[in-house]
Computed example of a mutant assay.
Amino acid sequence: MAIFANTEKMYEVLGELFRTLAAEPGIVDTLAADNLTIKFSISEPGGEIWLLPDGQVICGGHDGKPVVEMTLGGDTCHKFWLQQIKMPVALAKGLIKAKGPMPKVLKLMPLLKPAYAAYPAIAQKAGLAI
């Protein structure tokens, strides 16, 4: 059974996570400096989450064009934020597919620590297994 029961639950959990991340110092500055729009295309359940250069988080469709698109399953996303799977391994195994200039995404990796720290509590609050 998939970790997210439905798209709404996924948006609730990951939306809160990305809003928490966007509130962290340095994240919006980095996104804005590179005019970086990131689209997460998630399956199982299906949906998309957008992180815009101004730090806005959109759960659902958006007319913009992503600079970077990450495609992954909901379970992989959950494991990634719990640090049970690392980005290089997920990319190598095809669990995460990335399109776009990877140097820009790699600049964000050190700034993800607050999201890693916040996700277990967000997931647990939503009733997900951690």
Rank of each mutant, 00 (worst) to 15 (best):
P25E: 12
E44V: 11
S43W: 02
D75S: 12
T30Y: 11
G100R: 08
V28D: 09
Y11F: 14
M70H: 01
D29R: 13
W50C: 09
I49Y: 06
R19K: 15
N35S: 15
W50S: 09
F40D: 06
G73C: 02
A33C: 03
P45N: 09
M70Q: 06
D54K: 08
L95P: 02
G15A: 07
C77M: 15
G15C: 08
G73T: 07
G26H: 02
D54M: 04
A33M: 04
E16N: 11
F40L: 13
K99D: 13
P45F: 08
H62W: 15
T37M: 04
G46H: 08
A33R: 15
V13T: 12
E12T: 15
G94Y: 00
V57S: 10
D54I: 07
L31A: 04
A33S: 15
L95C: 00
A98I: 11
K65P: 04
G73H: 07
I38C: 06
P88M: 07
P45Q: 06
V68N: 05
R19W: 02
K9T: 14
Y11N: 10
S41H: 12
G64L: 01
G61T: 12
L17M: 08
P53E: 05
T30E: 15
D29C: 06
K79W: 01
K65N: 11
P53Q: 02
G74Y: 10
L91W: 04
W50V: 05
V13Q: 08
I58Q: 11
I42M: 10
H62R: 00
T76G: 00
I49C: 10
L21I: 11
P53I: 01
G73L: 03
M70A: 05
I96C: 00
H78Q: 09
V13W: 04
T37Y: 14
M87V: 03
L14T: 12
K65S: 12
G64Q: 05
K86V: 03
E48Y: 03
